[in-house]
Amino acid sequence: MIRYQLEASDVSTIRFGISPLSELGLGLRAFRAPERYPLQRPWLDGIAAVRPLLDDEVLLGLVDERRWVADFVNPRPESPLTSFDDELVALGRITRKRMHDDLERVHGTVPTVFTGRHDAVVARLQHALSDAWRLCFAPYWLRMRAVMQSDITHRGRIAAHEGVGAVLRGLSDSVRFDGRNLDVRLSSPIARDRPVHGEGVTLVPSIFVVRASTPIDDDLPPTIMYPARGQGAMWSTTSHPDQSAVRDLLGSTRAGLLQALGEPASSTDLAMRFGVSTSAVNQHLRVLERSGMLNRTRYGRAVLYYRSDLGQALTRVT
């Protein structure tokens, strides 16, 4: 358990934030232990096709079997408009000592993938995180962020009517607030006291937190990551579409391409599979991408296309 000790002035500086990089970092827990995140199964199924394109050695090296995540990929958001690109640039300035200290708190040692020349390690880390964001999070971010933003709005109304104390007590069943002490029950049995001293406490909703979580390093700014409400309906769709209607809407060729792109493929691969020219396939793929049904990524010299969230829904993949 960690106890954040708040003075009266600290209560007034409690704020909310959303961090794209932190959500990616917490999402690595679902990579490591998917069975612990049943509500995110549709998302995990949706990104299964692109998982082989990721640098799993780096990504899974950031989280251990307890689902502890290195603090440097769980930054405290500095503003409501924090962007992933800005956070990734800031991460590029991490020192070797900070990186190794954070990893040792998680693993007890530094995984081999994070040893070696520091600038090369940081560059590979940034590349791995960028790919994970682009392939697994960016296509779904509007939906994820909407759930988190709705949670913040809901708790803002509670604060206005019942006070900040009611908000803190309602974050999770593992969070307690007695008017001064803000206790967060964690998996670690070690009890720690952490005076806030005017730093403020940032509350960060997440779809990858089951109870509540805080930085492993007590010297970091006080932050509580808690489960966002409303996740149960996040991946739901109103109904499965009539596939004949989808073919009527898109045409048989585009509907067939959409159906075939459950796994990433290039236009050359698809042209051979469908027995048409590469230029014709490219034309169809560009239309499907502009309409939001496909995403694309570069893999080596090839451009690979795969279904987006919308494309998944239209092909009954959930």
Rank of each mutant, 00 (worst) to 15 (best):
L59A: 05
L60M: 12
G61A: 03
D64C: 01
R66V: 02
R66D: 05
R67G: 07
W68Y: 10
W68A: 08
F72L: 12
F72C: 08
P75E: 05
R76S: 11
P77Q: 08
S79H: 06
T82F: 06
F84P: 14
D85S: 14
V89Q: 13
L91I: 05
L91A: 08
L91H: 10
R93N: 04
T95G: 15
T95P: 01
R105E: 03
V106I: 02
V106N: 04
H107N: 00
H107Y: 04
H107G: 00
G108E: 04
V110P: 01
T112E: 13
T115E: 11
T115P: 04
T115L: 14
R117K: 11
D119S: 15
A120L: 14
V121R: 07
V122N: 02
A123P: 03
R124Q: 15
A132C: 14
A132K: 10
W133L: 10
W133S: 10
R134T: 13
R134P: 03
L135V: 09
C136V: 06
A138N: 09
A138C: 05
P139S: 09
P139N: 09
P139M: 05
P139C: 08
Y140P: 05
W141I: 10
W141N: 10
R143T: 15
R145S: 10
V147A: 15
V147T: 14
Q149T: 14
Q149M: 13
S150H: 12
S150E: 13
D151M: 03
I152Q: 03
T153F: 05
G156Y: 05
G156L: 05
R157D: 11
A160L: 13
H161L: 15
G163K: 08
G165D: 10
G165K: 07
V167K: 08
L168M: 06
L168V: 01
R169T: 13
G170W: 07
G170V: 01
L171D: 02
S172E: 01
S172Y: 00
S172G: 04
S174R: 12
D178Y: 00
D178T: 06
G179C: 04
G179R: 02
